[in-house]
Structures are given as structure tokens and as C-alpha cells.
């Protein structure tokens, strides 16, 4: 079947089997490999993307279900050379090590900041609680999101 989505502002289309998971559609058919695949059971969150601005585990959604929706992935976060404050925050605060969970973590953080520009530590912990990072022990991810909140341009609409 033909599936068409708007991904990072661009309309993309591919012929897929109806059973194709959104994560595989994004990675294998649209060649956006920044979205990762870590567990199959919706526990790890390496595959988190934004669908219409909300974090979704893309291993849990069929590509067909996403048809017609707006999807944001890590590849769409930066505006050319200009990084999203979340991306910059992860660099500044050592919020990543192996980088595998990072795209999903950053997108969850982006969605959080879009609805809550000044989240507390507890609110950040809750916002990323559905995602696993095996490297950082989370503290620096939380610092990174707070850094982003402090550096957010007031007009930003990235990823929303």
C-alpha cells in the first residue's frame, strides 16, 4: 500500500506492506536513520518521534496509521547550522554518551518544552520516564533539558 506522511515538513511517500511499523518505514523506506530501534515492546523509547507534536513510540504504530499525519524526527530538529536548544543543551551538559537513545530523548524533551517552557526536575523525569538511557544515568539529560529551557528563543516553534 502507498503511505504518505509529512515528515520534518516534507511530504514523503512509499509503497509498503500494511504490517510495516512506522519505525521501519522511517528508517528503511524514508532513509532517516536517526530514529532508532531498541526493543520491540515499547519499553525503551529509542524510536520516539513526534506525531502531530506528541511523542509516539514508532515501533508501536503502523506506518499506515501514520498516513496523513505530521511526523518530526531528529533530522528535522536543527534549522540548518542552527541547532535546536535541546540539541545544544545535550552537547553542553554531556547529556549523551553512545547516542542511541538521544534522538528519542531530545524529541520527548522538545515536546515537553513546547507545552511547558519551564519544567521542573520532576516534570522532566516524568516526561522521559518511558524511555531508557543505558549510559548517562539521566542526571545530565535533565540538566540538558533545563539548559534548553533557559536558552529557548521565545519565538521557537521547532518540532511542534
Amino acid at each position: 500500500m502507498q503511505v504518505t506522511v509529512t515528515i520534518n515538513g516534507e511530504e514523503r511517500s512509499a509503497e509498503v506492506e500494511p504490517r510495516t511499523l512506522l519505525v521501519h518505514f522511517i528508517r528503511d523506506d524514508l532513509d532517516l536513520t536517526g530514529t532508532h530501534w531498541g526493543c520491540d515492546t515499547s519499553n525503551c523509547g529509542a524510536c520516539v518521534v513526534l506525531v502531530d507534536g506528541e511523542p509516539v513510540k514508532s515501533c508501536t504504530m503502523l506506518a499506515a496509521t501514520a498516513a496523513g499525519h505530521e511526523i518530526s524526527t531528529v533530522e528535522g530538529m536543527a534549522d540548518g547550522a542552527e541547532l535546536d536548544p535541546v540539541q545544544q543543551g545535550f552537547i553542553e551538559c554531556h547529556g549523551l554518551q553512545c547516542g542511541f537513545c538521544t534522538p528519542g530523548m531530545m524529541l520527548a524533551a522538545r515536546a515537553l518544552l513546547n507545552r511547558n517552557p519551564d519544567p521542573s526536575e520532576v516534570e522532566i523525569r516524568e516526561a522521559i520516564a518511558g524511555q531508557i538511557c543505558r549510559c548517562t544515568g539521566y542526571s545530565n539529560i535533565i540538566r540538558a533539558v533545563r539548559w534548553a529551557a533557559a536558552h529557548e528563543a521565545t519565538t521557537t516553534t521547532q518540532g511542534a
Partner: peptide, 10 residues
């Protein structure tokens, strides 16, 4: 190594 990871370019 971070610039490539935060852009999903690992």
C-alpha cells in the same frame, strides 16, 4: 562526537 549524534547522524 556529539554534533553527529544530536543530528541523528550516528
Amino acid at each position: 562526537e556529539d554534533p553527529r549524534f544530536v543530528r541523528g547522524q550516528g
